[in-house]
Nucleic acid binder design. Sequence first.
DNA 1: AAAAGCAAAGTTGTATACAGGTATACATCG
DNA 2: CGATGTATACCTGTATACAACTTTGCTTTT
Lengths: 223, 223
Amino acid sequence: MQYPSAWLQGASLGESVASRLRLQIINEEIRPGEIISENKVAELFGASRSPVREALKMLAGEGLIRLERMGAVVIGLDLAAVKELYDVRYLIESFAQQRLAGQNNEALILRLEQAIDRMKLAIKHGDGVEFAYQDFSFHERIVQEAGHTRILHLWNNIRPIVMTVILLTTENSFKQGNERMEWIADKHRTVIEGLRSGDEERIREIVRAYFDDSDETLGRSLA
Amino acid sequence: MQYPSAWLQGASLGESVASRLRLQIINEEIRPGEIISENKVAELFGASRSPVREALKMLAGEGLIRLERMGAVVIGLDLAAVKELYDVRYLIESFAQQRLAGQNNEALILRLEQAIDRMKLAIKHGDGVEFAYQDFSFHERIVQEAGHTRILHLWNNIRPIVMTVILLTTENSFKQGNERMEWIADKHRTVIEGLRSGDEERIREIVRAYFDDSDETLGRSLA
DNA sequence: AAAAGCAAAGTTGTATACAGGTATACATCG
DNA sequence: CGATGTATACCTGTATACAACTTTGCTTTT
């Protein structure tokens, strides 16, 4: 499995190495406990130590590896860790949507519906990468729209991991047939419905339900 | 104002530069809108570009500067941004304490009480840096004890900013007299009380009250 | 005088070089 | 045979070098 090159547009070599390494770690092509050094990774990707160093710093900040005195230990992302990741997503997205509850979100909702339409199209074309990207964008858009700088930074902190996890789970979900994918796409409509209602309590419930479902999806995809 | 050298123990030159720059930015010795380049910062601190580059990456990840094609624009941390920071602290610490509610926290509480004792001592010695450190440690301990890896990473993401903000606000609070400091120290006792009760609803209220007070403290210190 | 073009300086991204420290393996000594 | 000391190879942190690109300001042309 390879990281979508379209997702690397404009990325520096360091980000590129980080993205490809990240995928390999989450995908368990590189196993937890393995020890990787800047030199080895540099050789592996045909780059110099500078961008690799940058990449390892990123991955360490995301908790995928642990930098030690000599070498970096791969930590990886097991099922429990992914559930923790979704705990945090819930915290962030729930906060963001609560914040949006009071205002007029028509412009936002238009873009969200556009994203869902593109998911549907991606299903028809069997394009998992595109589906994953639209799914991710849907959620990112909501967080951005909340207009809370610090929350947005938290989001940016988990952003690459979320992207990668969505990519992998989407690829797996596709194997369960198109009805499943339609169901996932439609689930996003309930979120829009919540935003439309403007009712904080209702939104809370919907987001809660959304991530409960996601947990179940994770179980299917990764276990 | 200078960054406490004790807080730089074992830090690399990059981290050191980041910490000192961070303080200057939050303290508004470097003003928002200013443009700083790797070379200028390197010269300023007498270091090479490598550690400075690392430092700027950190600060960008924290949202204190914005890396652009040429140069980095200082964003800074105004009062609104600090309040956002405390929104996030509330989210994280509230989550952590909810998680602790169900279990036996005697060992933790012992360490927390130790931290409060040290705050009291720091008041007597007029040692603002030590007080700030203990205040910070108190909260960090709680987050660590929650045992949620991903939440801990979020915490680590805002960690340096929180440390610096606490340092600055503490210095200012000291100017309001020792009774004020005693009050701040004692406020931490209510948190312990909440943890002892084990009652989720009670904890929610206490943490809420704690950060409401903090917001008010921020108003006094920074406005 | 204004605009277009060019030159020069500055900036980042990347590669490489160097220094200090750490782990490992082997040899030597008890 | 075991333990200790040393030598060697490797790794990270930092400094420096180089290339491609951007900006700025001056010069030249209209």
